[in-house]
Nucleic acid binder design. Structure first.
Length: 477
DNA sequence: ATGTTC
């Protein structure tokens, strides 16, 4: 383990006050000794820097998929008081409400006689890649409704089934979303992109449940051994990116104006209830709602293909759940001061609320919130459930995925994409992407192994495994 | 992540 870090428990570590000047609370992160080789000094420094921000509660936290990001580390969780605390775009990331959803089907692997044909049909139907545009015609008025109503817009417009909204975190609609602080430029970028996958680590995957760790929880979530599922990983595309860019600029000047001292310019922030902070929060919530619509429309595209190819009814392909892993939300948590509403930033971290929480859909409440952890390309994904330990230790949060260990540029030089594609095919995994270059960037070697990350949160008790899903086919931008 | 160096 790196110097200056103290061991708290088997997989829990503390970055003490004083690691960087001005820390108000310690840092805490979760990591196994095995994964400690991957820990970057820069990411720990970022974790400590976040502890300098005003109004931070208890700890600056990070999950085992920690790596350096813009200002805040990816894998980071930070909660701020309403009255004294701040909100920061760096704590959310550029891809606002990047998230993952899982769609169940009644199919088994044997039902898919020609996986290549299914993958081609999906690749043709779901627009993918940088700058991909949808065939949907979204008017400026539609976009405004999308940003305010979230997934409810999509369901009302015919892109969903009855239970879809209830199975999204936050009901697929952030309250207090505001289209007013969303720039015209952001709207222009967002309008043609609703229902598109994007690029980078975003994907649409055909998976099969190949291990069940908790029968009862799996049954509650509607999952069983051998079942074919579809996983969608994407976010708010150019809209969220533009909102982040726009508001970083206004918050940089706000940081100075409010006299907030920050150790890194990338931690630009404003008081939660300042005009600038509220403008960012409203616009961020609007982008979050757009991202839920985006994943919902892609879900509809997947269901349409499956209905056409296999004659399955839309109602037989329920949404298991949809999680947001890049977002800031106002949430009630127990603190030293009693029960408080906090502005919880999760950047590359997943909400993992425990059993009994009213925020968990009624049909899942006894088990806890489903947590969806996508694997890197070609590696397994997991469904876990939230716990009371997460509520106590991490403001109800857990990891979000494998986590990079190699930069995009480094990965591109390491192995040609064509070779990665052939290697995966040997393992029985079909990859369909817009280019071999994008496959190289996302090579499995560029990521931590997802099971190691999942095992840390299991050992820490932050969330517990329900099923494992192995990939059969991957569609990438 | 991203009209991938506005």
């Amino acid at each position: 383990m790196l110097a200056g870090i103290e061991r708290i428990d088997e997989v829990e570590w503390e970055v003490p006050i004083g690691y960087v000047p001005g820390m108000r609370v310690p840092g805490r992160f979760f990591l196994s000794e095995d994964l400690s080789e991957t820990l970057e000094v820069g990411a720990v420094q970022q974790l400590a820097n976040v502890a300098v921000l005003p109004g931070i509660v208890r700890y600056s936290l990070a999950m085992p998929d920690i790596h350096s990001g813009y200002g805040f580390p990816i894998g980071g969780v930070a909660a701020f008081e309403q009255e004294t605390g701040v909100i920061s775009p760096g704590g959310v990331g550029y891809d606002i409400n990047c998230g993952v959803r899982l769609i169940a089907t009644p199919l088994t692997p044997d039902d898919i006689k020609n996986p290549r044909a299914l993958i081609e049909a999906l690749f043709t139907t779901v627009p993918t890649g940088v700058g991909a545009e949808s065939e949907m015609r979204i008017s400026p008025h539609d976009l405004e409704e999308i940003m305010v109503e979230g997934v409810n817009w999509a369901v009302a417009a015919g892109y969903g089934t009855e239970n879809d909204a209830a199975h999204c975190e936050e009901g697929g609609k952030m309250p207090n979303a505001n289209a007013a602080p969303v720039s015209k430029k952001a709207c222009q970028r967002g309008m043609p992109q609703a229902g598109t996958l994007g690029s980078g680590n975003h994907f649409l995957e055909i998976q099969a449940v190949d291990a069940v760790f908790d029968n009862e929880a799996a049954q509650t979530f509607g999952l069983s051994a051998g079942q074919i599922c579809f996983m969608v990983h994407c976010g708010s595309r150019g809209l969220g990116h533009q909102i982040c860019t726009d508001h970083l600029r206004t918050l940089e000047s706000a940081t100075r104006r409010y006299g907030i001292e920050i150790p890194d310019r990338q931690l630009a922030c404003a008081p939660v209830h300042s005009p600038e902070g509220e403008a960012y929060f409203g616009a961020m919530a609007a982008a979050a709602n757009y991202a839920w619509v985006n994943r919902q429309v892609i879900t509809h595209q997947v269901r349409t293909v499956l209905n056409r190819m296999y004659g399955i009814d839309y109602e037989e392909m329920p949404l298991v759940y949809d999680v947001a892993h890049n977002v800031a939300k106002m949430e009630r948590h127990n603190t030293d001061k009693g029960r408080q509403t906090l502005c919880v930033h999760r950047k590359g971290a997943t909400r993992a609320f425990g059993p009994g929480c009213p925020e968990v859909p009624q049909d899942y409440r006894a088990v806890g919130q489903p947590v969806i952890i996508p694997g890197s390309m070609g590696s397994a994904s997991y469904v876990l459930h939230g716990t009371n330990t997460a509520m106590e230790k991490t403001f109800g949060s857990t990891c979000h995925g494998a986590g990079r260990v190699m930069s995009r540029t480094k990965a591109k030089k390491a192995t040609p994409g064509s070779e990665v594609r052939k290697d995966l095919l040997k393992q029985g995994i079909i990859v369909r992407a817009t280019s071999d270059a994008s496959i190289a960037e996302e090579a499995p070697d560029a990521y931590k192994e997802s099971y190691k990350v999942v095992d840390v949160v299991r050992r820490a008790g932050l969330s517990l495994p329900v099923v494992r899903l192995r990939p059969i086919g991957v569609i990438k931008g």
